[in-house]
Design a protein around this nucleic acid. Structure first.
Length: 479
DNA sequence: ATGTGC
């Protein structure tokens, strides 16, 4: 059991001497109850392990939704100096640019009785499940264009509108993508998968605004009580998965070549000035753009379904994009550390960027309110919208949590759900669910997750991001 | 997360 001390009501510290090789301490954001569940897996060990990465700055950080992952826990944030630091694919995750998109719609009154046909039509229109193939057939050159242009590619093909791009993190197009750094295998796996939801915790949900905590910011985001929203959670599918797999294979060799000492081989990494790091970052950005294009396509079809089922014109439907965040990605950013500005590679793995109002890298639309932070909970409880707070710049390299975080493995959840009908339980709560995988709803039931309300309360109280609205689920489709 | 799995 790793040594951890409490610093305050919402912060904990793993001292630098808790494990050999640590270059910086670990800092974990949690309250007492969340820490009790965090202690049950190996995630704190992983926070300490990541503190041994060369060039790590200040601390190995973890959000209240952490749980064990590959190398770094999901919910981990690691910043490395671009001059002497490394990039670690395990610090980003297999699902490169897994992220969340939120759109607004009508009022609940207008569609309350139409949720079931909407869910059925969405389920029919949007491919779900492991290995699902999409409606977009990409040629080789087209797929390369997707990796460079991201959401812009989708808009140019008629999936959505140009103004959507003004409401996506990095405008849905990450610079520095290198289509030549992506393997043939990743291209093959991705080819049929643009415009697919995938499986696991990925979902598309119809929700309603349930509570408003910050009226001014909610107004600026176009979110009012009882309004319908659509939340989409998915990533780069087989394309990103293969890109991560390819990189890990390379990094294992690189660790030996450069003589890097690591407490866990899952943290395999490469110095940022090496050709291997440049190649991976080029491929990671390509995969990130694939994911932005993926969410853009899904959002477009969602809009089409709403128009068809409700018999509405585009202008009557509205459905503006609120925001689209990447929560599995590494980004080069400038941060002040001990009074000095430094260029850092910030790895966010199951963590959301949360720049506060006024930050120069924010989209123009949100510069005065801060970056919207989209936090999906679980199917049966709720989700949240927050915005970045100034504390995130002082403490977490402009980062906050990304979701609820699992407390049960998938197999444990299926076992715990034996004899129950999760679909019926959701229905009893007024939530209509459709899923492809045989155990998909059981694996994803509420009991398998921490209560997102507790997670969000911690990041709110800790000053990393502030609550804006709560969203309650009405209908969901899953893989 | 994933052409899921020791």
């Amino acid at each position: 059991m790793i040594r951890i001390e409490r610093l305050g009501p919402y912060t904990w510290r793993i001292p630098e001497d808790a494990k050999p090789g640590m270059r910086v301490p670990g800092i974990v954001y949690a309250d007492e109850a969340l820490m009790a569940s965090i202690r049950r897996d190996q995630s704190l060990e992983q926070v300490a392990n990541a503190a041994a990465l060369p060039g790590i700055v200040k601390a190995s950080l973890a959000m209240p939704d952490i749980h064990q992952g590959y190398g770094l826990p999901v919910g981990g944030v690691v910043a490395t100096d671009v001059r002497d630091g490394v990039v670690s694919p395990g610090g980003i995750g297999y699902d490169i640019n897994c992220g969340v998109r939120l759109r607004t719609g009508l009022g609940t009154d207008e569609i309350q009785s139409r949720i079931e046909p909407l869910v059925d039509a969405l389920y029919a229109a949007i491919p779900t499940g492991v290995g699902s193939k999409g409606r977009v057939k990409l040629s080789g050159p087209e797929e390369r264009a997707v990796t460079s242009k991201g959401a812009r590619w989708a808009v140019e093909q008629g999936y959505g509108e140009a103004q959507d791009l003004l409401r996506i993190e990095s405008h849905g197009q990450i610079e520095g993508a290198d289509p030549d750094a992506v393997s043939k295998r990743a291209y093959e796996r991705g080819r049929g998968q643009l415009g697919t939801l995938g499986s696991g915790n990925h979902f598309l949900e119809i929700q309603a605004v349930d509570a408003v905590y910050d009226q001014t910011v909610a107004d600026a985001l176009g979110l009012v009580p009882d309004q319908i929203t659509v939340m989409i959670h998915t990533g780069s599918r087989g394309f990103g998965h293969q890109t991560c797999t390819d990189a890990l294979q390379v990094m294992e060799r690189v660790v030996r070549k450069y003589g890097i000492q690591l407490p866990d081989r899952q943290l395999a990494c490469a110095p940022l000035d090496s050709p291997e790091a440049r190649e991976y970052l080029g491929a990671m950005r390509a995969a990130a753009n694939f994911a932005f294009a993926n969410r853009q396509c899904l959002a477009h079809w969602t809009r089409e379904v709403f128009m068809r089922v409700l018999g509405l014109s585009p202008s009557a439907l509205g459905m503006a994009l609120v925001y689209d965040v990447a929560h599995n990605i590494a980004k080069e950013e400038e941060h002040e550390v001990d009074g000095r500005k430094r260029r850092l590679l910030v790895h966010r793995k199951g963590a959301t960027r949360a720049f506060p109002a006024g930050h120069p890298e924010l989209l123009e639309a949100y510069r005065s309110i801060g970056q919207p932070v989209l936090i999906p909970g679980d199917m049966g409880r709720c989700s949240y919208v927050l915005v970045g707070s100034p504390g995130s710049m002082r403490e977490t390299f402009g980062s906050t949590c990304h979701g609820a975080g699992r407390v049960m493995s998938r197999t444990a959840a299926v076992k715990a759900a034996r004899g129950r009908s999760i679909r019926e339980e959701l229905l009893a709560k007024g939530i209509i669910a459709r899923a492809t995988g045989r155990d998909a709803l059981e694996e994803e039931m509420s009991d398998a997750y921490k209560d997102v309300t507790n997670v969000v309360e911690v990041v709110h109280q800790a000053g990393l991001s502030k609550k804006v609205v709560k969203l309650r689920p009405l209908g969901v489709i899953k893989g």
